[in-house]
Design a protein around this nucleic acid. Structure first.
Length: 279
DNA sequence: CTCCTGTCCTGCCGGC
DNA sequence: TGCCGGCAGGACAGGA
């Protein structure tokens, strides 16, 4: 579900809403998500002040005041719901983890499909943590350049679509933003990654950055039930050029009769693109 | 190594 | 109505 822009939006929402709050109580309400919750999760969180709300790829990293960190991944259907102090709250079936803060605010981690993840780690070992060890560069950092991207893609014979979905190539992209970035770079999702030239790689890296920045500015994309942590919808879905738009025209369409955006399946996932504008 | 398939889980939508 | 198949924003393990 949530890709980098949605995760970043949730991270910002948590930071703004909670700030440096202390966890008064932590309650797990199921065995866990994709994997069981870590042993002692509730005890590890209780009494801890959250001193930093970070993000790496699609993971949210909550740094605690004792040098440990709680790592959250929202999977396909995960949501973070923030409940103001004093507001009524009855946990629902899919609220798997509920934190209550000293001021009475609450945080519920809701995940119907349970593809999400909650981990504990030592802050000092985060870089080498299995979630991050092989993760590629942050696309909005200076470490992500066209040159760097090309060096990685050169070793890949899979489609550029599949390569960009791989978190070890670049962190944080998923199905939506890969499709959108490829459209903005005018590159066909069917091209082999290793066949992209230097100029195309530069163009693609720039497209990725622009698409992600615009999506973050719009508060992410709301499909089905994704919400920002404060409950508002994102609105980048209205700016999709190709994603979910099979049969429609892409922005600035140059096709005559026929043409339009098509949907194909690559590696078991939908890809949306324009055959005419993406080569 | 890289690549591909199957799998985890629930909800929703469209067709009959 | 109700039932069923297909699809969904992700990421792993396991085998080729």
């Amino acid at each position: 579900m949530p890709e980098l822009p949605e995760v970043e939006t949730v991270r910002r929402g948590m930071e703004k809403f909670l700030g440096p709050s202390v966890v008064a109580a932590a309650e797990t309400r199921s065995r866990g998500l994709r994997v069981p919750f870590p042993r002692g999760l509730e005890a590890a969180l209780t009494g801890r002040r959250i001193v930093k709300y970070a993000r790496r790829g699609k993971y949210i990293v909550l740094h605690m005041d004792n040098g440990r960190a709680a790592i959250l991944h929202l999977g396909m259907s995960g949501r973070v719901v923030l409940i103001p102090p004093g507001a009524p709250f009855r946990p629902g079936r899919h609220d798997h983890l509920v934190l209550t803060f000293r001021n009475g605010a609450r945080l519920a981690l809701n995940d119907p499909r349970r593809f999400g993840l909650v981990l504990l780690a030592e802050e000092s070992g985060l870089k080498d943590h299995k979630a991050f060890a092989k993760m590629g560069p942050e696309p909005l950092s200076s470490a992500f350049t066209g040159k760097k991207l090309r060096n990685t893609l050169m070793k890949r014979t899979v489609s550029i679509k599949a390569a960009l979905m791989d978190q070890s190539v670049v962190a944080g992209l998923g199905n939506i933003y890969v499709c959108e970035s490829l459209f903005h770079a005018r590159i066909s999702p069917l091209r082999r990654a290793c066949d992209l030239g230097a100029a195309e790689s530069e163009k693609l890296a720039a497209a990725i950055r622009i698409v992600l920045k615009r999506a973050i500015a719009a508060g992410g994309s709301t499909l089905r039930d994704y919400r920002q942590a404060d409950g508002r919808s994102g609105y980048f879905q209205h700016d999709f050029a190709v994603y979910g738009r099979a049969g429609l025209r892409c922005p600035g369409c140059i096709c005559g009769k026929g043409g339009g955006i098509i949907r194909i399946v690559q590696n078991g996932r939908s890809t949306f693109y324009c055959e005419r504008r993406q080569k």
